[in-house]
Structure formats: C-alpha cells, structure tokens
Amino acid sequence: MKVLVCIGHVPDTTSKINFANNDTEFDSNGIQYVINPHDEFTLARAMFLKEKQGASLTVVNVGPSTTETTLRKSLAIGADNAIRINAEPKDSLFVAQQIAKVAKDGAYDLVMAGKESIDYNGGMVPGLMASILGVPFVNAVVGVDVDGDKISVTREIDGGKETVSATLPVVIAGQKGLVKEEELRIPNMRGIMMARKKPLTVVEPDGDFTMTEFVKFEKPEVKSACKMVSADNVGELIDLLHNEAKAI
C-alpha cells in the first residue's frame, strides 16, 4: 500500500500574527514554522499503517525550499521519502492540483491530509484533491482502518460520528482523535540521523490554476476592557448578562 501524507508548513501556534507590505502579505519575520498540527495526527496514524501493515509512506509539501525543514522533520518521524513541489502555494486550488498530480502519477492508494491548515484555514485542499482525482473523500476523520483495498473511516459529524466504507484509492482529511495525544511522534536522534539520508525529491509545478487571491489582511479590533464583577457579588454578573448583554 502506498500512502501519501500532505504536510503543511505553518507558523507555530504561539505566533503573533503581523502583516507586511501595506497589509498585503504575511510577515514571516521571527516566525517559527511547524508541521500543521492536524497533519501531525495524520502522520502519526500513517506511521501505524507503515509499522503494522507495511505501507510505504511519502510526505509531500507545496512550497519553496524553506519548507524542507518541515519535510525533514516528517522524514525523521519515519516517512520513507519526501517530495517538495517547488512553488509558492498560491491558493488552495493550486496546491490541490499540484498534489493531485503527484498522487496520480505515483498511483498512491491513500492520500492523507489534515482537516485544515492553521494559517489560511481553508479546509479545502483535501476535498479539492479528491474531486480532481475523482475518488471518494472523507473529512474530519478520527478513525481509519485499511484491509486490502477496502477502507473503513470514522468521521466527526455535527453532534456525533459516522463510519463509512469505501474502496481505495481514497482521500481523507484527519484531525485530533485520529491517534491519541501520547501517540503523536517526536523525532528522536536516530530518526534525525536517518532522515538525512532519505530521498527528498524536488519537482517543478505543473499548470497554474487559481480561483482566489488574498488581497489584504487585517487584525480584528481589540476588545474594549473587560468589565470586572466582584466575587462577593456574582449576582451582578447574571444581571449584566441578562439586562446589559442580553445574552441569557
């Protein structure tokens, strides 16, 4: 079984977000980049497919050479090889098209991505890829089992869960719950050493289709000061919420 894991390269969750060039682009000054948190869950789950079911694992990213640190980290966690598609990720459609091409050319059985990237929060790339490839798609996945060419996938739905089955190839978008928190992988020294020798292939993008363009960024207005209520008079909070905020 060939598994392709999409790895987003995103600002660390503690990052303070700023914009440059008249608020037209993200200011990456001083920003630490990490594997997109949702992708950490899919990568950890993919590692089980490798260890228990002998799957081969390729990680892929669409980005400039600066994203290679993130791909190397994924190799150190245990992926067999990495592909970087050498392009600025212009928009979700562009990214989806590039990865879909790699997935098709490499005849992958299972493409795993995250539910959303924590920078642009589109939640679009995986579903777009599936549609471009013409294969089934399951979103917000918290469980997956593969048996031969059959896959059983559990997804979160509003207020519950649903389990579906399908025939490979399939695209899934994973999230927290796919593995337990303590099963997330952190690269160890040996993994880091081995990762240096693993293949990281750079391929050039193919085609240039986009559907959207980010033109301007802004930060939400700062909230006005918090109204404090004394702990000795909690009734006042309820009054305020009822009469002033009209929230209860």
């Binding site: 969750t13 924590i118 920078d119 642009y120 929060n121 363009e213 960024f217 802004e218 939400p220």
Partner: peptide, 15 residues
Amino acid sequence: KVFSNKAHADVVLSK
C-alpha cells in the same frame, strides 16, 4: 477568517 481567527483577509474570487 485566517490564522485561526487571529486575523481576517479580503479574498478576491476570480471565477
């Protein structure tokens, strides 16, 4: 919403 709602963005839809 972008950056987990730490910011907002204006996006042009071209199609």
